[in-house]
């Protein structure tokens, strides 16, 4: 089953895929950020695939080039197979939003924005989800210290 899906995806999306990584049976397709919407639409609409978005996360590589990786976690209830899409972006580069393809992307993207400061363009409501609105930093970036930054969150006034 897995090989079949892999082959099918490779055939259909071969123009968009840069690299395929398989590690401990997890299948990751590395793609370009500008093709993300097309590919996820295809994953959703193809009657043999019917993928839905389960999670979005970002990884801060802390390098000068391609600093961030954004990983999209897809699961197909029909095929019972999980795949990951990964895009590599620079610091301060924006990513197209997936909200118009999957509604669930709304909060996932807000979380990534809150934690890593990655902006998603055309997102309908890109607010912070955990940290207070006036907070200036993005805690899961590697330069943010574990102990936090003193006075970065103001105490409530009485």
């Amino acid at each position: 089953m897995k090989e079949l899906i892999k082959k099918k995806l490779q055939e259909k999306l071969s123009d968009y895929i840069i690299d395929i990584v398989e590690f401990q049976s997890d299948l990751t397709f590395v793609i370009k950020a500008e093709n993300l919407t097309i590919i996820s639409k295809h994953l959703r609409d193809d009657v043999e695939l019917e993928y839905s978005l389960r999670d979005i996360l970002a990884i801060d590589r802390y390098t000068n080039e391609n600093r961030f990786e954004v990983v999209y976690n897809f699961f197909s209830i029909k095929n019972k197979l999980r795949i990951f899409l990964k895009i590599k972006i620079e610091d301060a580069e924006s990513v197209p939003t997936l909200v118009d393809v999957f509604q669930s992307a709304n909060w996932y993207e807000r979380e990534v924005f809150d934690m890593h400061g990655i902006k998603f363009y055309n997102h309908p409501d890109l607010r912070r989800i955990y940290m207070p609105e006036e907070f200036q930093y993005h805690p899961l970036r590697k330069e943010f210290p574990l102990m936090g930054i003193p006075n970065s969150i103001s105490l409530p006034r009485n």
Binding site: M115, R128, I129, Y130, P132, P139, L140, F144, L146
Partner: peptide
């Protein structure tokens, strides 16, 4: 959300 955010991922 966020009233119980303790930053476990960090």
């Amino acid at each position: 959300l966020g009233y119980l955010h303790r930053g476990y991922e960090k």
